[in-house]
Design a protein around this nucleic acid. Structure first.
Lengths: 227, 227
DNA sequence: GCTCATTTTGACCATTTGGTCAGGTTTTTG
DNA sequence: CAAAAACCTGACCAAATGGTCAAAATGAGC
C-alpha cells in the first residue's frame, strides 16, 4: 500500500491489536502490571514477542491502552444512572448494569482494582477529571432526591462508594465468592438473587422502598421496621 | 547458646522478624507479590538482603507469613460479630470493627485483596476451611434473626459480601477515595460519617432500623419510608 | 514484475532479581 | 575462657524479562 489515510488502520493491524489487547487484559488482570510479561501476553495472543513490540512499543503503552478501554466500558455503564429521574428506577438500572459488567467483564474490573491498589500510577488523571466530575454531578442528583423527600438523608458520596464496592466485589473477589459457593461460579439464579439482594438493601437502606420489598415479586407485608 | 528451648525465639530474631514482616506487608501491599522485591523489603527493614534471606529462606515463605498475620487480624475483628445476639448491636459493632481496621491497617487489606485478585495462590486452604466455616456459621445466625422476625428476609451470604466489600473499600480503594476527596485522606469526622452511612444503610436495608435513623444521634422523625 | 511501505521474527542484549555461599562477628553456654 | 551456636554480609550467580535489531517476508499499487 502506498499512501494510506493515516487515520485508517489496515485490517491486519486492526486484528492484531485486538488480539493483543484481549490477551493483555486477561494477563494484566491475572498477574498485575509487574507480574504480567510481554512474553506471556504475546503467547496468548498467538504471536512472537517481537511482533507485540512492533504494535505496542512498551509494556506500559500496552497497559495504558487496556486501562483506557476499561474506563470507557465503565463510563457506558455509568450512563444508565441517568435513565430516569426516579431514584428507584435510576439506582436499580445502575446497580444492575454494574453487576452485569462484573459478571460479563470481570477482567476489566480487576485491572482497575489492581491499578487503584497500586496508587493509580497510570490513571491518576482520569480519577482527577472524568471520575471526579461524574461523581460530583451524580452526588448532586442524589442530594436533590433527598431535598425532594424521595429518599432518606444519606451522604451521597458514601452511598456511591457503597454501590461501587458491592457490585465490583462480584468481579474483583469472584475467586473468593466462588470458593465460598463450593468452588463453583454463581449460576444464573444465584447471581440474580445477589443482584436483588444488593438492590433491595440499598434501596430500602435509603428509604426508597420498604424493607423486604426486594425485587418485583415482593408481595410480603410492607413491614415498617419500627412497627 | 547450646540448647535453647526450640519454641523460644531470641530477642534479636524476634525484633528482626518483626521489622521484616512490617516492611514486607507495606511493600507487598504497594506492589503486589511479583512487584515486591526482597531487596526493597530488606532496605525498608534496614538490613542487607542476605540477612533477610537468613530469616526467611524464600520470598514466598515471607509472603505466607504476612498473609497469615493479616488473616488473624481479620479473624479478631470477625469475633465482634458475636458480641451480641441483637442484629443492630452485632452488625453495628462488626461493621465498626471492619471500618476501623480499614483505616488503621489498610496495608493488610490490600495484601488480601491482591491475593484474591490473583486467585489466592497462597491462601486457598484458608478460604476453604476457616473462612468457609466462619461464613456459614454467621449466615446461620442471620437466618435465625430472619426466622425470629428481627430483620427482613435477605440472603445472608450476599449480605455478608456487601459488608465486606463496603468496609474493605475504604482500605483497598483508599487512593480513589482520597482523590475524590480533593486529594486528602478522610479526616476523623468524614470517616465517622462514612461509618454511620454504611451502618445506617445496611441496618435500614434489612429492616433492622427505620431509614434515616443513622447513628445514635438520630432524633429525626422516625420516617417509615412507605408512609 | 518492480517498488516501497508494512509486517514478521529469531537472535541477541542489558538489567533486574531471587537466592547462595564462604567467611566473618557476636552471643550464649558450660 | 573456649567452643558452639546464632547471626551478619559482600560478592556472586543463574534465570527471567523488557526491549532492540537486522534481515526476511508480504502485499498493494503502478
Amino acid at each position: 500500500m502506498r499512501a494510506r489515510d493515516k487515520t485508517q488502520k489496515s485490517a491486519v493491524r486492526e486484528e492484531n491489536e485486538r488480539a493483543i489487547l484481549k490477551a493483555a487484559e486477561e494477563v494484566f488482570a491475572e498477574r498485575g502490571f509487574r507480574g504480567a510479561t510481554t512474553g506471556v501476553i504475546a503467547d496468548r495472543a498467538g504471536i512472537p514477542k517481537a511482533n507485540l513490540h512492533y504494535y505496542f512499543p512498551t509494556k506500559e503503552a500496552l497497559y495504558r491502552r487496556v486501562v483506557e478501554h476499561i474506563f470507557n466500558v465503565w463510563l457506558d455503564a455509568a450512563n444508565t444512572f441517568d435513565e430516569s429521574d426516579d431514584p428507584v428506577e435510576a439506582l436499580t438500572s445502575y446497580i444492575s448494569a454494574k453487576m452485569d459488567i462484573s459478571r460479563a467483564h470481570p477482567m476489566g474490573s480487576k485491572v482497575w482494582a489492581n491499578e487503584i491498589l497500586h496508587k493509580a500510577p497510570v490513571i491518576q488523571d482520569y480519577l482527577e477529571t472524568t471520575l471526579r466530575d461524574w461523581t460530583a454531578s451524580r452526588a448532586a442528583v442524589i442530594d436533590r432526591w433527598i431535598a425532594e423527600g424521595k429518599i432518606a438523608p444519606v451522604n451521597a458520596q458514601y452511598l456511591l462508594y457503597m454501590i461501587w464496592a458491592t457490585t465490583q466485589h462480584y468481579a474483583d473477589f469472584n475467586h473468593q465468592v466462588d470458593t465460598l459457593n463450593g468452588g463453583l461460579p454463581l449460576n444464573e439464579a444465584q447471581f440474580e438473587e445477589a443482584k436483588r439482594t444488593v438492590t433491595g438493601i440499598i434501596l430500602a437502606g435509603i428509604g426508597a422502598i420498604p424493607p423486604t420489598a426486594v425485587g418485583p415479586d415482593a408481595s410480603a407485608q410492607p413491614a415498617c421496621a419500627d412497627a
